[in-house]
C-alpha cells in the first residue's frame, strides 16, 4: 500500500492580522496510505473540519505542504483543481448543496465539471447512484422532493460520481436516527470494500470510528493528539475523556469493571468483543 496523501507541517490561521486571528490547525504531519479507512475524531472546534479542507486544496495552508501522490497540490490553479477531483470531500449536511432539477443532473454536476464525455458522465452517475442505493425512478425526481436520508445519499453520490481516489466524509451521519446512521455507515463500508478507495471519515462519535476504521486520528486543540489503531486509541481513554470525547458506553462498562478489580481488556469497543471477553472471564472465575 503506497502513500497517497501526505501533510507536512501544515498550519492554518484564520483572519491573520485581525483581532479575530485564530489558529485552526497547528503543525500537522500526517500520511495516509492507499486503501486505508481512517477516522478523524475530535470535538467541535478541534480543527478537524478545517484540516480536511486542506486535503483537496479548498484551503491553502498558511504554512506547510500537502501532497497527493507526491505532488504538491497548491502549486497552481490547475493542481488545485486536480486535487478537488482526486480527493472528493463530502461536507457536513451535504443535502443543503443540492440544486438541480433532477437527482440525475445533480449527481452529474461534479463529473460534468471534470469535462468528461456525456457517456462517461452517465455511466458514473448510474454507478454512483447504485453505490448509494438510489434507484432509476428516483433519478428523475426533483432532489427537493426526497426524504432527508435520501437527499443525503444523493449528495454523497454527487461526490462518489467524480470517482475520487480519496473520499473524505465530514460527519455524514449528523442528525440521522440510528437506522439512518447504520444505513449510511454500511453504504460507506460496502463502497470501501468494493472499490478500495481510501476513506477518511470525520466524526465525533467514537463508536462509529471504532466500528469502521482501521486507524483513528484524534484531534484536540488544533493538533493531533493520538494516532493509531482503534484498540490503541481506546486504551488511552483517560486522554480521550479529557479532550471532550466520549468513549463508547461498553468501553466505560469495561473500565468500571477494571476499577472494581476485574481483569478485563479496556481497549475493547464492540458488544461482540465485550461479550466474548466477559464469557471467557466467567469461565475462568467460576
Amino acid at each position: 500500500m503506497g502513500e497517497i496523501l501526505k501533510l507536512e507541517n501544515v498550519s492554518y490561521t484564520y483572519g491573520a492580522g485581525t483581532p479575530f486571528e485564530k489558529t485552526a490547525v497547528k503543525d500537522i504531519n500526517l500520511t495516509f496510505n492507499s486503501g486505508d479507512f481512517v477516522a478523524i475524531i475530535g470535538h467541535t472546534g478541534s480543527g478537524k473540519s478545517t484540516l480536511v479542507q486542506h486535503f483537496n486544496a479548498l484551503l491553502p495552508p498558511t504554512s506547510g505542504t500537502v501532497y497527493i501522490n507526491g505532488e504538491d497540490i497548491n502549486q497552481s490553479a490547475a493542481t488545485r483543481r486536480a486535487a478537488r477531483f482526486a480527493c472528493g470531500l463530502v461536507f457536513q449536511y451535504p443535502e443543503y448543496q443540492l440544486f438541480e432539477e433532477t437527482v440525475f443532473l445533480d449527481i452529474a454536476y461534479g463529473p460534468k465539471n471534470m469535462g468528461l464525455s456525456e457517456i462517461e458522465v452517465k455511466r458514473r452517475v448510474l454507478a454512483a447512484a447504485e453505490a448509494v442505493g438510489i434507484d432509476a425512478l428516483t433519478l428523475e425526481k426533483s432532489p427537493f422532493d426526497l426524504s432527508g436520508g435520501q437527499k443525503r445519499r444523493v449528495a454523497i453520490a454527487g461526490i462518489i460520481a467524480m470517482e475520487p481516489e480519496i473520499l473524505v466524509l465530514d460527519e455524514p451521519m449528523a442528525g440521522l436516527d440510528p437506522k439512518g446512521r447504520d444505513e449510511i455507515l454500511d453504504m460507506i463500508k460496502n463502497y470501501h470494500d468494493k472499490h478500495k478507495t481510501t476513506i477518511i471519515l470525520v466524526t465525533h462519535s467514537m463508536e462509529d470510528a471504532a466500528r469502521m476504521a482501521n486507524r483513528i486520528v484524534v484531534m484536540c486543540d488544533s493538533s493531533v493528539l493520538l494516532d493509531g489503531t482503534p484498540g490503541e486509541i481506546f486504551a488511552r481513554h483517560d486522554l480521550l475523556t479529557k479532550s471532550g470525547l466520549d468513549v463508547p458506553q461498553i468501553t466505560s462498562v469495561l473500565i468500571e469493571l477494571k476499577n472494581r478489580g476485574y481483569d478485563v481488556d479496556t481497549s475493547v469497543y464492540t458488544i461482540e468483543g465485550a461479550k466474548e471477553q466477559l464469557m471467557k472471564l466467567r469461565g475462568k472465575l467460576c
Partner: peptide, 22 residues
Amino acid sequence: QTVEILDELGLKDVALSVDECC
C-alpha cells in the same frame, strides 16, 4: 449498550447506567 450487553449475555435484567450494568 448497557442493555444490549446484558441481553447478549442472556441476562434478563435491564441496566440504565454504567454503574448498574457493572
